[in-house]
């Protein structure tokens, strides 16, 4: 057992690096709340871009929402779109530069509420882009208002007694909706709150970029995420709540592949 006497400093010296922050994430502090799933989603997205070696040819479209500053964090070419219009902007970029990889990164208030029309029609046209859809069931940036994806009975600042479906409708399953469109090549729902889900989500993003390379059509990846500030829970409690409640209504897995 000579190895057990190694100090951490010796392991750092002798061992190999098994994990290091990707160079495609800038060294600036992320503006997200502690424990927010955006950070993990940013990281796996940029890791896929780095592993595929396509950072020169990748153009991202940032949304309006908490991730509006994604262009500050991702060290690639980015464009920021008006609220909900990221798929429309991505359509334009992709048609001008058909050889580039184009993705949008959107939240649920952006993609599933104000941007529903743009999303559905971009998917219906089968635009050859990747849509990353972060679903945390709430409008995070503006103070936790009810979003179309807010669960039945879930409290938010504009549904303080819980979402009542009689007056406010049901939570929208946008990924299932667009999966039925023939232009969509790949629709999947993933999560990033545990290591095993992070690995699966990264594989899904990789598959989506490969679809774009092979010109198969639109790929949409929904990532069920947390909003511990909006949900008024600690980061650990928020992930537990996500696991127990969100995943029942938003089951993980491939919807169309």
């Amino acid at each position: 057992m000579t190895t057990s006497v190694l100090t951490p400093e010796e392991i750092i010296k002798k061992g190999k690096v098994v994990f290091k922050k990707t160079k495609l994430i800038n060294d600036v502090p992320l503006s997200y709340c502690p424990g927010c799933g955006h950070g993990v989603a940013h990281r796996i997205l940029m890791e896929v871009v780095e592993e595929m070696g396509i950072w020169e040819d990748t153009i991202g479209v940032a949304p309006v929402g908490c991730s509006v500053l994604a262009y500050d964090f991702m060290n690639i070419d980015m464009q920021q779109a008006a609220h909900g219009r990221a798929p429309a902007v991505a359509t334009g970029i992709k048609r001008v530069y058909p050889e580039k990889y184009v993705f949008t990164y959107q939240g649920d208030g952006d993609l599933a509420a104000i941007g529903t029309a743009e999303t559905i029609h971009a998917c219906n046209r089968g635009e050859n882009i990747v849509i990353i859809f972060i679903n945390n069931g709430i409008y995070g940036m503006t103070g936790g208002q009810m979003a179309p994806t807010t669960l039945e009975g879930m409290r938010s600042s504009t549904s303080p007694y819980g979402r009542m479906v009689q007056t406010m409708g049901y939570p929208i399953k946008i990924t299932e909706m667009v999966a039925m469109l023939p232009g969509v090549a790949y629709a999947t729902r993933q999560a990033v709150h545990e290591a095993k889900y992070v690995r699966k989500a990264k594989n899904a993003i990789k598959k989506a970029f490969e679809n774009q390379r092979d010109k198969k059509g639109t790929s949409i990846i929904e990532i069920v995420s947390n909003c511990n500030s909006g949900w008024k829970l600690s980061p650990v409690e928020a992930n537990k709540w996500l696991d127990e409640n969100m995943l029942d209504y938003f089951p993980l897995g491939d919807i169309k592949k």
Binding site: V17, Y32, R43
Partner: peptide
Amino acid sequence: GCKICALVCPDMCFTVYQYKP
């Protein structure tokens, strides 16, 4: 050195080293 901490860290704080004798 299983790097699970690094996978769940939202702020990418971790660098993980592993030594296999």
